[in-house]
Write a protein that binds this DNA or RNA. Structure first.
Lengths: 228, 228
DNA sequence: CAACCCCTCGATACACTGTATTGAGCAAAT
DNA sequence: ATTTGCTCAATACAGTGTATCGAGGGGTTG
């Protein structure tokens, strides 16, 4: 009390605290990430968007990583699960496409997926559906490997796709400036003669769109599974 | 000059600046990451390990992300390339195993791989070798898809593996405490009845080691490629 | 109705991050 | 011999995750 009462300002009439919930927190964190990417998600910003101080969130979370885990599980929850009648391969395909669609809606999901243990209820449900689709008459270990294989492909593929999209959109929205930025470097690399196949590819190949590439790769993976 | 010379201390006899190079920077950054993970890599720590101030690094890098890119390419450089005589499928398999081996040596590589555009010379060489191995008589687009498929699987798989390893080693080195931490939760989830296949798997399946799973998945992927 | 207590929440603080700016000292060039 | 330019370190700043603390209000008890 280093000031007299007369000088000291009144307490700032604290606004009625906004009711909070884990769901609301995750929701606004996802919204922040949707526009601005994962780096736009900080506890301070999330709290500010909710009209509260940062430390309040620690009542609902122990750590920022837990927030990311919750966000991850929220996205898993958006992936529609095929109904159990669906035949195995078709179900796996549907899950894969659902996962990719989720990444298209939430680019940042590509940064999280496969990165931390997905033990949330929705991730488990996704896993359950995959496993059920893959399970056949044989030993369950086969189904595990099938799921591992497909999901590894899916996570790797969606990351690749997002990465490439960013490579373009980072240099500026137009393809022009990207050409000017990286093309000369690549040109020089190709001129070195060390990458003949790459050079031929860059010259000849027509670059197909992401959908087609993903589907084609997925088909190859699925056809290697020797599933009943 | 707010003090008289007599009071003012001598300049700290600045130590002869350590000669630096991009290679040395990347090397020590990788060393720091090897013990301590990616979060142990900060420009300050790298600089300190080199005996210099942080800002000096900006002569060699524009950004921390560039350092991570260099580290990524350094690891790509460790992957042995199959000699060009090797038959296509065998070469792809060798590259995949080489990539996985690199991740075993540098866990942090799993966090970087597939995350940012790998345009460094070593990554390009890896890509060139993959593309050359995948290229057949058909259109080059087929080879692109093949490479995309295999590499997507590999990146996804190694991330999965590292993630699982961390899940165990994070809770404490012993399996005991992990059981105590997550097992009750999973138990309750399984008891909910929503994850029957998962439950059966957790109960019945013997968990095979990472090598076997990776190889088995890779074989499935490769066998789906319909490569000559 | 009054007094207490707990518990929730915000303010403050700390260590740390990446990076911009500034200024000092030395080497080379005029 | 003087100036110029370049290299590097010190300082500074905004932002991060999180620990600590103190005040305030709501519910429970006298």
């Amino acid at each position: 009390m280093d000031e007299l009462v007369w000088e000291r300002p009144e307490p700032p009439a604290r606004a009625a605290p906004v009711p909070l919930s884990r769901a609301r927190i995750v929701e606004t964190a996802c919204a922040l990430a949707d526009e601005g990417g994962l780096e736009a998600v900080s506890l301070r910003k999330v709290a500010a968007a909710l009209g509260s101080g940062p430390m309040r969130l620690y009542g609902y979370l122990d750590t920022k990583e837990e927030l990311l885990d919750l966000m991850t599980d929220a996205v898993y929850g958006e992936i529609p699960l095929p109904d159990p009648e669906t035949e195995g391969l078709a179900a796996l395909r549907a899950l894969a496409h659902g996962c990719r669609a989720a990444v298209q809606r939430h680019e940042w999901f590509a940064d999280l997926i496969g990165g931390r243990p997905g033990l949330g209820p929705n991730a488990l449900a996704y896993l359950e559906a995959s496993l059920a689709a893959a399970a056949g008459p044989g030993p369950i270990e086969d189904a595990m490997i099938t799921v591992f294989t497909v999901h590894s492909y899916v996570t790797g593929a969606v990351r690749s796709e997002i990465r490439e999209r960013r490579l373009i959109s980072d240099t500026g929205l137009d393809e022009e400036s990207w050409q000017r930025a990286a093309a000369p470097y690549l040109q020089r690399m190709f001129d070195s003669g060390r990458y003949p196949t790459l050079l031929r590819t860059a010259r000849d190949a027509v670059h197909p769109d992401g959908d087609a590439v993903f589907s084609a790769g997925l088909d190859r993976v699925l056809s290697g599974l020797s599933l009943s």
